[in-house]
């Protein structure tokens, strides 16, 4: 049964996430071809990771580290019992991010989300969730647009 369009406008969050330096490293390591649990410590970083993590002497988050915190309201939306989505049938259709501010260790990020569209096409349901994440200074760090595709069983 298609997902009811009446859920358009449903809001999720706020969710909060505190940025940690080791988590930024783990993420860069996992994306960069390394093994997170065997990552590096101290002040150095493998040469291959320098642009991802270090701007001069300052650690910043890899842009799509926002996957880690901005996904929270999206996750709440697609697991909302009133939508009745079978997660095994869900795949990620599209993703868009606009980046405004880098994230740094110690930042506290608050994310909110809203379902902006629901439609059915070719035996699949499509759910669009728009998210916004702000830092502790109230500045928007990233906006996301998430498209979930749910295949019919």
């Amino acid at each position: 049964m298609p997902i009811d369009k009446k859920h358009i406008g449903s809001k999720y969050g706020p969710t909060t996430y505190e940025i940690g330096a080791e988590k930024l490293r783990e993420f860069a390591y996992a994306v960069g071809g390394g093994v997170p649990s065997m990552g590096f410590t101290g002040t150095g970083a493998p040469t291959s990771l320098l642009p991802q993590l270090w701007q001069g002497r300052e650690i910043v988050g890899f842009p799509s580290f926002c996957n880690v915190f901005a996904i929270a309201p999206f996750g709440l939306a697609v697991t909302d019992p009133k939508l009745g989505i079978n997660l095994l049938m869900l795949v990620h259709g599209e993703q868009e991010y606009e980046f405004f501010e880098p994230v740094r260790p110690g930042d506290v990020i608050t994310s909110t989300g809203e379902i902006t569209d629901i439609f059915e096409k070719q035996a699949k349901d499509f759910v669009t969730v728009v998210t916004e994440s702000k830092n502790q200074h109230g500045k928007v760090v990233v906006r996301g647009r998430w498209l979930a595709v749910i295949r019919h069983g």
Binding site: V60, G93, Q95, E96, F99
Partner: peptide
């Protein structure tokens, strides 16, 4: 420079 990325858009 990771801080210069302004936007990404993909379809899987």
């Amino acid at each position: 420079d990771a801080t210069r990325i302004a936007k990404v858009k993909v379809r899987f």
